[in-house]
Design a binder for these strands. Structure first.
Lengths: 283, 283
DNA sequence: TGGTGTCGATACCGTACGGGTATCGTCGCC
DNA sequence: GGCGACGATACCCGTACGGTATCGACACCA
């Protein structure tokens, strides 16, 4: 008899319908049926009458429904009490400019649900430091995009996106359905400010240092393409803005969306957010 | 956060020592450490300070200890309340004469712990009916020994014992360390009463019907060997009584100790007892 | 009466998690 | 500085949970 099983039972007892209960629990019907049967052998009583007419509660089932509800309520309150006893917990999350995508949105929602008492500080950073200030202690955990120098950090991959070239829509290459890096060899690129992570810089400049306008944010990259006539790279998957085209680059390694934190940082809130993020990005 | 995890935490918080807590929980230390760490990321707070000096509770840990104790107490009471609502549950267990071995003893203890409110009626039966009256509805579940006619029954194996020949200690064959059935071909056997299950009869008479004294119980078999000079068969593993010897029979299929119940009987108490029996006999 | 649809149960499969053993890292302590 | 105690880590394995496909029972309707 575990809390999970009791949650299952409450759902079935309230819906009086295995299929609907399974939908409510975001699972399929067979494992739910099995879990309820297991619960019945565990408590040693039939909890539900199943018949073609429908599902009804037995006296034992009615009693368990009542008991389980109060038990689950109290379990929920345990979290809040522990959080209160721990004091006001704070976690600072660094988010790289372009990472506020669907995964990050869902992560925020799921995290607030799990840790309502935790004060989350978001630090939105530009492209100068892909680690969002991890090493300087400015943030506890970074939700960012690779690749970058990982020494001293623990990095957990959330997703991997193939990348494409960003071109003006009227560029001759924009009609191609795929490109190689060599196709862009004679084009102007933008460059990153001095001090930007070397690995990051080399990846997003197509493998070599470049001359060109300096950019500090994703929006600036796109503007550079539009106004300065450069080319650039961006992860696939987002619809490009008007007047720009993104063409897959087939010889570039995918760019990883990752969670990163300082090696050895024992803060459980970090582990927790990484765990939730893994689920949120899994789709 | 599951009840199991909370039980683990309470053990560690009370012992303030992972190793001792693990021993108390009948598990080893590493998975316990892992479970506690997982609980910490789950609730989002450090619960224990680990240092060489020892383990101490954080404020959050102290709060959780208190909360978890009450939650676990209530969870325990849920079982009792459900049992009460289900009314006085009764289960009749048939036990074949010789099955009151260590497994059965442990089963009884474990079952009483799990279902304190259930009235268990034991029906100890002789060898005439290896199913202990299952088909007649005299018992809900039989803890017995095979082989027997299984039509209409569901049979769950608990253990398989090799069998041996029972001989008087002064029998010339008693010195052998193993025998074949053929070695006993010219000996007198006991026989079972009319109406005894055919499969059972043929197995325990060494493959063929026999002439000889009629026996109804295990003790009578042994007496028949002593007093009537017959031979017989018995499962290995028990020390034979004084003046008798048991020699392994290498060409007999092992005899299975099983739980059996009427096919389709949905009584959860049956499922439960079978489940507990499986664990109790696993050693 | 036989076809059809609904719904819970069953069968089967792949993965993930909980348990195990072996070993490491760290910190007192003699 | 070597040693012992103890929690953490690494790795392996079996169970159990969740998935899909299918069955069986029953009500409803033509």
């Amino acid at each position: 008899m575990e809390l999970r099983t009791l949650r299952y039972f409450v759902a079935v007892a309230e819906e009086l319908h295995f299929g609907r209960a399974a939908a409510r629990l975001h699972m399929s019907q067979p494992p739910l049926s099995r879990a309820i049967k297991q619960l019945e052998t565990d408590v040693g009583a039939v909890l539900l009458h199943r018949s073609a007419a429908g599902v009804t509660l037995t006296p034992a089932g009615a009693a368990l429904l009542d008991e389980a509800r109060t038990l689950l309520d109290q379990a929920d309150r345990v979290r809040a009490r522990v959080a209160a006893a721990a004091g006001v917990a704070t976690i600072t999350v660094g988010i790289l400019g372009d990472s506020a995508d669907r995964g990050a949105t869902r992560l925020a929602a799921a995290y607030r649900r799990r840790h309502p008492g935790v004060e989350v500080r978001i630090r939105d950073t530009d492209l100068t430091d892909p680690t969002c200030g991890l090493r300087a202690g400015l943030v506890d955990v970074a939700l960012t995009r690779g690749p970058f120098d990982e020494t001293g950090l623990t990095v957990h991959e959330l997703r991997a996106d193939p990348v494409g070239a960003v071109l003006r829509a009227d560029d001759p290459l924009a009609r191609r359905d795929r490109l190689k890096l060599a196709d862009l060899a004679d084009r102007r690129w933008f460059q990153f400010p001095d001090g930007t992570d070397r690995i990051w810089q080399s990846y997003w400049n197509g493998g070599e240092p470049r001359e060109g306008p300096v950019v500090r944010a994703v929006q600036e990259c796109l503007q550079a393409v539009l106004w300065n006539g450069t080319v650039g790279m961006t992860p696939l998957g987002h619809d490009p803005p008007e007047e720009l085209a993104v063409v897959p680059l087939i010889d570039m390694a995918p760019s990883r969306v990752v969670a990163a934190w300082n090696e050895g940082d024992a803060n459980p809130l970090i582990r927790s957010i990484v765990q939730i993020a893994t689920a949120a990005y899994r789709d």
